[in-house]
């Protein structure tokens, strides 16, 4: 802000120093601003260039990728790489599986968390505080420490190699954060609406479904983004709890693609881009909301 002010003010000092050497405070500030800008842009390049390089080689032939100049722009855009990744590389199948698992996890997590948070935040019972603490303890538990027992449990219950083998654990590990955010959000809502609905003769289920659910939409958006990202990107459970081709999700599918396409970067790159596309589209279309969901999660945690 300070720099901007200095630049815009048609101040007396500016007139005075018109013929003075350029090495004044004003000039120094300019250099500093430019230097700062260059560094920020450099970091932006470091953050994004690998991703651009990925998109470029996903559209190249092997000849170009392994040729003289692997950093050049693609000569022709080889969309065939994408077709082969989708159909021969099975990425299409994994993509659908990822969508099924993620969408189910997001919807069920939101619903279960909304119900539990409502009872914890708004209803009157002795153990509500304890229940909240129990759920919040879940935030501290690393997924790794439940890996083997869950694996054995899923095998014994025939859930192994089904969508449920991933959906159930994903819900379990998404609930603590979701409940955290929602209990906080319920706390900010006024009580009058519920009370007047109650006086009008609505029962508790109607109050929850008709009045509270529409009100907590912003918080549901926050936890949906969070849950979407953690399910879509999850690797360890996905690689352990599913071994059948038909149920594999994208992260595991990509790991499998590596062997098959070890010397064909184009197809592999296309697979990586396809796997990232939904996330990037969501981010581009609502980057503010995505960023907000990360900061809300952190503040509550």
């Amino acid at each position: 802000m300070e720099n901007v002010k200095n630049l815009d003010e048609p101040s007396i000092s500016k007139i005075k120093i018109k013929h003075a050497p350029r090495n004044t405070k004003h000039g120094m500030n300019n250099i500093k601003t430019y230097g700062e800008r260059v560094i920020l842009l450099l970091i932006a390049v470091v953050q994004v260039y690998p991703l651009i390089w990925l998109i470029m080689f996903s559209l190249k032939s092997n000849q170009e990728i392994f040729g003289k100049d692997p950093l050049a722009l693609p000569q022709n855009l080889l969309w065939g790489n994408y077709a082969r990744a989708l159909f021969d590389g099975n990425i299409g199948r994994y993509f659908i599986n990822s969508i099924i698992v993620t969408v189910a996890s997001v919807i069920i997590t939101s619903l279960l968390a909304a119900m539990a948070s409502y009872a914890i935040a708004r209803m009157k019972w002795k153990l509500s505080g304890t229940m909240l603490i129990v759920f919040l303890l879940g935030l501290m538990i690393p997924m790794h420490s439940t890996l083997l027992p869950l694996f054995i449990f899923l095998k014994k219950t025939q859930f192994y190699n089904t969508y449920a083998a991933l959906i159930l654990p994903y819900i379990g590990f998404s609930l603590p954060m979701a409940i955290f955010v929602l209990v906080g959000f319920f706390g900010t809502l006024p009580r009058e609406l519920e009370e007047s609905a109650c006086l009008d003769g609505a029962n508790i289920y109607q109050i929850f479904a008709r009045i509270m659910l529409p009100l907590i939409k912003p918080a549901i958006a926050t936890i949906s983004i969070f849950t979407y990202l953690s399910c879509w990107n999850e690797l360890m459970f996905a690689t352990t709890f599913v071994s059948k081709q038909e149920y594999k999700t994208l992260t595991v599918g990509i790991m499998g693609m590596v062997g098959q396409y070890a010397t064909r970067w184009g197809e592999l790159g296309a697979g990586l881009v396809i796997a990232t596309l939904p996330t990037v589209l969501i981010y581009i279309s609502m980057s503010k909301q995505v960023q907000k969901s990360f900061t809300t999660g952190a503040l509550k945690g």
């Binding site: 990509i254 796997a275 990232t276 990360f294």
Partner: peptide, 11 residues
């Protein structure tokens, strides 16, 4: 700066 955060670690 935030873009890499949302991309899967596998990718």
């Amino acid at each position: 700066y935030f873009i890499p955060v949302i991309i899967s670690t596998t990718v």
